[in-house]
Design a protein around this nucleic acid. Structure first.
Length: 565
RNA sequence: GCCCCCGUAGCUCAGCAGGAUAGAGCGGCGGUUUCCUAAACCGUAGGCCACACGUUCGAGUCGUGUCGGGGGCACCA
């Protein structure tokens, strides 16, 4: 079977060898004849710009170059019905009706996934995301990251990777102490005592809610002074419960929750040893200053500043366990590791990467570690920006966001219509108000319509063709059929590109195109017609192909594909 | 102080490895239903792609700079 991706690869190979056979060694070794989709029907379906690039190299004008290349291509690929030279020197290919129909047939009978390139080939990938510390409920920002991470994971899985989803969290250190102390203060107040939430502590009302639970489960009479660990562990457990339940609202599950404490002390000590025994330009990568702090010499690695990794009180700073954690990931032999971080982690992430490159080799790290940084979300409510902070208790939770937006599906889809690295204004009022005209409903409606057609066809006892024959493509020669088939054929290629770039927002673009393509088709073409059963079956096949693409893609986004609306 | 992101239609944003007439949704205006879901479709208005210079046969796309907007970073994580 020739998949759309294979067709393009084959076309590029033929173009390249044709170029080399005409011009020989003048052509540089790294020359690559790439093809891309034409955006205008009059320029065929696939186009190649190689001739324009070659103009400077072979000293000829692009149109004549294109002509010479095209001459050698005649009839070399049966999927191509015609080749033309247009504009300044584009070589444009028109796909044959048989091929387009067979591509749709493949989608209809097998679904999208088998047609995607098997990039992962069963290799292991680890995606780390959310990784919010257990100090409170997940917020809007985490929501964006959760949606991004889970979609990227799903996309990798669809491309043949075996994906583990991992959540890393800090369960030691000052933050957890502050959380426990905040709970202790609320607990004491609940018992009638006087206590203030500590400086820098957590003021969220959810902590007050926990006091009833801790009194029920652990009794009364506890004090922070005598039982700090009880408070800390109780709070941590409660917070993790909240987080898991928030994630379940989005339908997201992790394979592993990796606690920082698993790294302490051995893994962190090992990491420090490794750093200490590494020298750059004759100097050790770590050094101690007069006050006893241990510094990481990041300036030797091209970073702007050295950073403290152990404070004078002996506690690690954030970077140290994070380096150890990444070393642990590398030791688990993944072929690909993806970190998904908010913009606030940028500096740290670069420092960690620099340290890893030094310890493990630049090549290994740059090949295997991909960092996706997403910008923050600004919430707009009643026309005003909302400032958020977990500590002050002044934030909008993921749960509230989903309630306000109307559903988890709407929330997920809207987050994925923007590039990760773009700032995002999420207007709550608008999300809710527009919910009936939302892009997600537009796409889901297309799916529901197709499901309706399939039901009607079932009642009329019209079923899909079992095997592909060119008789089918003869029935699909109308402009709306061809337009839809052309679109369907490009889907696997475009999804593969989104996966390679790890840009899930492109999937919502593809979905919107598919929905538009289908709605147009639907408007102009009657599918179920008992008067011409063969034609109905052929058109039904297109509907089915469309449905497969839409439901598979919505599946990757984690959005429901309803059969009725 | 250092760093990141953004500046494209009235609004919110796409524009995939620079390429052929700049796209979508929402909003505006005007149409379409004896027929598988009108949450749809069709038409129309609306843009010196912030600005300047540079690289190129060719720049919304790459580089440098300017202006404007958003945000982040500190031995908190």
């Amino acid at each position: 079977m020739m998949t759309p991706g294979m067709l393009r690869t084959e076309l590029e190979r033929i173009l390249e060898s044709s170029v080399r056979s005409i011009w020989g060694e003048i052509i540089p070794d790294d020359f690559h004849a790439d093809v891309s989709g034409s955006d205008n029907l009059e320029f065929g379906d696939i186009s190649c710009q190689a001739a324009m690039r070659l103009a400077g190299i072979v000293k000829d004008n692009p149109r004549s170059i294109a002509g010479r290349i095209a001459e050698t291509l005649t009839d070399s690929i049966e999927e191509i019905s015609s080749v033309s030279i247009d504009g300044p020197g584009f070589i444009n290919f028109t796909l044959s009706d048989d091929y387009l129909a067979s591509a749709a047939f493949d989608l209809a009978s097998r679904g999208l996934q088998p047609l995607l390139p098997d990039t992962g080939a069963g290799r292991n990938a680890l995606v780390e995301f959310v990784s919010s510390n257990p100090t409170g409920p997940l917020t809007v920002g985490h929501c964006r990251q959760a949606v991004l991470g889970s979609t990227i994971s799903n996309l990798l899985e669809a491309s043949g990777w075996k994906v583990s989803r991992e959540y890393y969290f800090n369960d030691t250190g000052r933050q957890m102490t502050l959380l426990g102390e905040s709970l202790a203060a609320r607990y004491l107040s609940a018992e009638g005592g006087e206590a203030a939430v500590p400086e820098g502590g957590y003021h969220g009302s959810y902590i007050i809610d926990w006091t009833a639970d801790i009194r029920a489960e652990r009794g009364t009479g506890l004090t922070w002074e005598s039982d700090p660990d009880t408070f800390i562990h109780f709070a941590e457990e409660k917070a993790m419960q909240m987080i898991r339940s928030d994630l379940s609202l989005l339908g997201i599950e992790f394979d592993r929750y990796f606690a920082e404490s698993e790294l302490i002390p051995e893994a962190v000590t090992d990491a420090i040893d490794k750093l200490s025994s590494t020298t750059v330009e004759g100097r050790s990568l770590v050094y101690k200053d007069d006050s006893g702090k241990l510094w990481l010499r990041l300036t030797a690695l091209g970073r702007p500043k050295d950073r403290v990794i152990i404070r004078d009180n002996g506690m690690y700073t954030y970077r140290m366990p994070d380096i150890a954690y990444h070393l642990d990931k590398f030791s688990r032999k993944y072929d690909l590791m993806v970190d998904i971080f908010g913009a606030d982690h940028l500096d740290t992430s670069r420092d960690v990467t620099a340290a890893l490159e030094c310890l493990l080799g630049r090549k290994d790290v740059s090949e295997k570690l991909r960092v996706v940084i997403h910008q923050f979300v600004t919430l707009i409510k009643d026309g005003r920006r909302i400032k958020m902070s977990t500590r002050s208790g002044d934030f909008v939770t993921l749960r509230e966001l989903i309630n306000d937006a109307g559903s988890a599906d709407v929330t997920k889809y809207l987050f994925l219509t923007r590039r990760a690295e773009a700032h995002m204004d999420f207007d709550l009022d608008l999300a809710r108000k527009q919910s009936s005209e939302n892009p997600v409903y537009y796409v889901q409606y297309a799916h529901a319509r197709i499901a309706g057609i399939l039901r009607t066809a079932g009642e009329a006892c019209i079923s899909l063709p079992d095997v592909f024959s060119s008789g089918i493509s003869k029935l699909l020669e109308g402009e709306y059929e061809r337009e839809l088939m052309r679109l369907l054929e490009s889907v696997p290629v475009n999804v593969a590109a989104a996966a390679d770039a790890m840009e899930p927002h492109r999937l919502t673009e593809i979905l919107a195109e598919l929905a538009t393509g289908f709605h147009r088709f639907y408007q102009h073409v009657r599918v179920v017609d008992t008067g011409s059963r063969d034609l109905s079956a052929a058109r039904l096949m297109l509907c089915r192909a469309c449905r497969c693409c839409i439901s598979d893609l919505l599946g990757i986004l984690g959005v429901d594909a309803p059969d009725r609306m």
